[in-house]
Simulated scan of single mutants.
Amino acid sequence: MAGPDFDADLKALDTTLRSIEAVLDLDRMRKEIAELSEQALAPNLWDDQANAQRVTSRLSVLQSEVDRVSSLRSRLDDLGVLVELAEDESDADVLGEAERELTSIKRAIDALEVRTLLSGEYDSREALVTIRSGAGGVDAADFAEMLFRMYLRWAERHKYPTEVYDTSYAEEAGIKSATFAVKAPYAYGTLSVEQGTHRLVRISPFDNQGRRQTGFAAVEVVPVIEQTDEVDIPEDELRVDVYRSSGPGGQGVNTTDSAVRITHLPTGIVVSCQNERSQLQNRATAMTILKAKLLALRKAEEEAKLNVLRGDVAGSWGDQMRSYVLHPYQMVKDLRTEYETGNTQGVLDGEIDGLVEAGIRWRRQQQSPA
């Protein structure tokens, strides 16, 4: 089997990386890093905690991005030198090492290229994800829990911190719903393509006749709000209920009514939080989630008005955006992008980068003018 054409591959990767560097505008990013670094050294920085968090968070994100691109540029330059030495000395072992590094760099540049497609207003934000079981009874509740685990495992693979705010367990198995945060830059832009209805087809472990069953679960993704977001909610638009936190099967995990459920009366949006011991903390977190959902709703309404003006009847996520088939064959297929894989267990274990990246590219194509 013939090896790679190193010269052509290196030129192609260099062209792609130069394009990425131009899109990201590294000079502008370095200038902003210098300005933020100066602000971060101010002795009174933490007098305004909200601003301090904004400065330090933005500085961290920018530095990470510049380091990521600079590291890839260094690796690509080093690889060119390694290939030249290996070919001069006809060293098969070194050529094999170079081939592995080429594959690794290509994968990293492809991922970075997808990152440059995340240029929406809120794409750089952290994400709030809510999963709800739909039609399909206990199989749907079990599927919702499978998706919950899938996204947590995906975040774990990328070393993204997560925080679970609320989990409502179903009576027999699985969950009715769960809400959690993915606390990483661009988590919203990345995971927003996962929003929609997911469908599972399998032999039900809960059917004593071993019949094939279909279950549905809905995934909602909204951006985490920031101090600069204007979301004012009058108190008379809220109904606040407190209750006792509970775990699977009704097992008590708290002896006080510390869990909080907030209903926004005008929209009917309901959010809950039970991860903290304090009712006040749970209420504050629930309000943060509610504001994020209202912000996303406002953005969706604005986009809907623009689509009417454009005469745009396409672009709907649709009721079913992805199917997970475990019987009679093994396949996960995204119905928007046509991306599919037979590695169903890998996907359910969090290996969803291929699906996500295809979704991001698909979305950019939908947004591009015809």
Results as ranks from 00 to 15, higher is better:
87 E>F: 06
188 Y>L: 05
6 F>N: 02
160 Y>M: 15
83 V>G: 12
52 A>P: 00
170 A>I: 00
60 S>L: 07
225 I>D: 03
313 V>W: 06
351 E>S: 14
57 S>N: 05
144 A>I: 00
224 V>Y: 05
41 L>S: 15
66 V>T: 08
245 S>P: 15
64 S>I: 03
47 D>N: 15
287 M>V: 00
184 A>L: 05
80 G>N: 08
255 T>P: 04
295 L>T: 03
361 R>F: 11
221 V>H: 01
264 H>A: 11
233 I>T: 10
283 R>Q: 13
223 P>H: 03
79 L>P: 12
280 L>P: 03
352 I>E: 09
268 G>M: 00
354 G>C: 09
52 A>G: 00
150 M>Y: 02
332 V>I: 02
88 D>Y: 05
311 G>E: 06
358 A>H: 13
76 L>A: 04
369 P>F: 10
367 Q>T: 09
227 Q>Y: 09
150 M>A: 05
44 N>K: 10
64 S>G: 15
333 K>E: 12
268 G>F: 01
76 L>K: 02
26 L>S: 05
29 M>D: 13
154 W>I: 08
300 A>W: 10
359 G>N: 10
205 P>N: 05
280 L>N: 07
117 L>E: 05
4 P>V: 04
110 D>F: 10
10 L>G: 06
100 R>S: 12
99 E>W: 10
291 K>R: 15
255 T>C: 05
67 D>G: 08
129 V>K: 07
65 E>W: 12
141 A>P: 00
328 P>E: 12
67 D>T: 15
42 A>H: 04
341 T>K: 01
84 E>M: 12
211 R>P: 01
211 R>S: 03
184 A>C: 06
49 Q>R: 13
340 E>W: 06
241 D>R: 02
31 K>R: 12
355 L>H: 12
289 I>D: 11
311 G>P: 05
169 Y>T: 01
240 V>N: 05
186 Y>W: 14
226 E>Q: 14
235 E>I: 14
163 E>M: 12
77 D>V: 09
257 D>G: 07
282 N>T: 08
182 V>A: 02
192 S>Y: 07
167 T>A: 00
352 I>K: 08
